[in-house]
């Protein structure tokens, strides 16, 4: 079940990488697949890659849904 996990981009790194934060945990991901990502954007992540950008309102709705389902527990581990 491929759930969508939005994460907030906090910093751009060399080589199409970026730092994101999710539920208080910071991770490095690849943003090679998506153009125009910048700090402050929300991106949907899958196996270490940003799949797409989504707006903040949509991200917050999704995070609220995932929290309701309990699916965020351990998401950033």
């Amino acid at each position: 079940m491929c759930l969508a996990i939005p994460a907030l981009v906090s910093e751009l790194l060399p080589d199409d990488m970026a730092k994101v934060s999710l539920d208080g945990v910071t991770k490095e991901i690849s943003i090679a697949m998506v153009e125009g990502v910048k700090p402050g954007d929300y991106v949907i992540i899958h196996v270490g890659y940003a799949l797409s950008k989504i707006d903040a309102e949509e991200a917050e709705k999704t995070l609220a849904l995932l929290a309701e389902a309990g699916a965020l527990q351990g998401a950033a581990e």
């Binding site: 079940m1 491929c2 759930l3 969508a4 996990i5 949907i44 992540i45 899958h46 799949l51 949509e58 709705k61 999704t62 849904l65 995932l66 309701e68 389902a69 309990g70 699916a71």
Partner: peptide
């Protein structure tokens, strides 16, 4: 992977809300 979350999230919601919700929840 989480199993059975759809029941927990969708039951008692208006059916018209489900397509958008399920689309938002699935990344791929």
């Amino acid at each position: 992977r989480p199993v059975g979350f759809s029941s927990a999230l969708f039951v008692n919601r208006p059916a018209d809300e489900i397509p958008a919700l399920v689309g938002r929840l699935h990344s791929l």
